[in-house]
Amino acid sequence: MAITCDFYGPLREAVGRKTITHDVSTDATVGDVLESIAVDHPELGELLFSDGDLRETMNVSVNSRHVRLQDGLETPVEDGDTVRAYPPAEGGST
């Protein structure tokens, strides 16, 4: 099944483009998707993961819902889902 993955900031630089459409098996999780992409782009894995978990400072969503509010990297994905990975989001001054 095809999963659309959007990357932002340094994560985009690690994979070289904003969007990757990735084919995975039907029982895949969001962690499987990102780890699979990281095989070709090792820097992505270094940025996103620490000891197999999502780094505290990194963010991943499935269909615009943060995986911390779902099952973390074990959150299942389905055909046509959108995964987004982005760096810390801080507000700021004018």
Partner: peptide
Amino acid sequence: SDDIMRRQGTTNLTEFLNDE
């Protein structure tokens, strides 16, 4: 720090806030 804010300030937020 290799934080992207050091290169783009707060503007690094723009695209993913727009999309997400």
